[in-house]
Design a protein around this nucleic acid. Structure first.
Lengths: 230, 230
DNA sequence: CTGTATCCCCCCGGATACTG
DNA sequence: CAGTATCCGGGGGGATACAG
């Protein structure tokens, strides 16, 4: 924030000077979620220009919220890590997220659909524990979308690592999910639940994987917060 | 916010679109604190232009955070009241305030001294219970400041109502407080405590009122949060 | 008392290309 | 991969005066 501050000693105002500038809270949410590298942050905030991202990262570093460190083993690789003060922003993110989940109308949230963002979030929160301890591949198909955004693959490795692919990785597919982006997003946000063989979603493949989808599909961290507006 | 939104369905992003624009969180803090009238809000956010204040109030109304109502008995008097969604922002304000109190350096906060704001806040949080159940008048003198900002009076009525005066109300004074603005602000923020007869503060007048000053002087709502940086 | 109207500057931030 | 350099336009928001 290079605009003059609020000139208030109040801690809320002091915090707001740092936190309440454009994109900053969204970026912090991404950092709190555990993203550390520049280009990964870009995936989490795709509409933010790299220039502004770079600028905000510097501001947050100056504010003592994060530290930029060169990767220990690889030269030229940098990572951004929250400091103790930065990690302590978790309650702020949590409070804002819960409020948003509770009070922002679904209709409005669901105007901001983005398959890349959704799949990226799903990758992050997926829970491999109900899945077989072998490589599992799940294909998502959104027929409504343009060719390049139609198909996505989640590859769950035996150890539990999850990869997201936007090009066919060539592996055998264990489960095919065909749905529309709005439905999938609503499920991920906790606004509705997975129903096998609904109009909006078709699951084809391994039955045990299909039937546990609501489990292994980790939801948004705010999905549990009940909505109080339609 | 008329800038295009973040295009993210994430509740944090949705909330940030409404909350993280300039002045908005500071204004909401003031509303959460119980201020309802336009000109009282101006006292709470003195550096915000009336145009922008008006604009933000409309935005918050549109967002379903507050309602503007005409005062029931007096025509032409309007009040802004938080809706249920607005009151539910309390955890957000609290989280941000606690973070600010904990992590923003005192040196920086104490660069934003403002006697009007401080006295206004003190008026709001003053606890009359330890005071005698008669009218009590306390004069604050900041010798360092310009004439018009040097002297302030808190008038506590028998019922407990507190008035703030910037001109001598003419009543008998029960306690004279002479200090500097930085010390008084630090005390109110919980960074230090009242000490009788220190270099920084002189208390002259009724002994029982002087000795209970740390009590009746209600502190900032965030004073209890311990600071983790100097 | 409760705002509006108006003016205008500055700078925020979006877009794009490019570099080590 | 990890950013910078550069350009540019729009509008956010500060200041002030005034009106109902």
């Amino acid at each position: 924030m290079s605009q003059p501050g609020y000139k208030q000693f109040c801690p809320v105002a002091m915090a707001a000077e740092v936190l309440c500038t454009r994109w900053t809270m969204v970026l912090i949410r991404e950092l709190v979620a555990g993203t550390n590298r520049f280009n990964e942050l870009r995936r989490g905030v795709p509409k933010m220009s790299p220039t502004l991202l770079s600028q905000r990262l510097k501001e947050l570093e100056t504010a003592g919220i994060l530290e930029k460190k060169e990767h220990s083993s690889e030269k030229g690789i940098f990572e951004y890590h929250l400091t103790k003060a930065g990690k302590d922003l978790y309650p702020v993110v949590e409070a804002m997220g819960n409020w948003g989940q509770k009070w922002v109308e679904s209709q409005i949230s669901l105007k901001n659909l983005d398959p890349s963002l959704l799949m990226w979030d799903m990758r992050r929160n997926l829970d491999p524990s109900p899945l077989p301890t072998k490589q599992t591949v799940i294909q998502f198909l959104y027929p409504e979308l343009s060719r390049s955004k139609q198909r996505w693959w989640l590859v769950i490795e035996p150890k539990g690592d999850v990869d997201l692919c936007w090009a066919d990785p060539g592996f055998d597919i264990d489960l095919y999910v065909t749905t529309d982006l709005r439905t999938m997003t609503a499920i991920w946000m906790g606004l509705t639940t997975v129903k096998r063989e609904s109009e909006q979603m078709k699951l084809i493949g391994a039955k045990e994987i299909a039937s546990s989808m609501q489990i292994w599909l980790g939801l948004s961290p705010f999905a549990a917060q009940k909505k109080l507006v339609p």
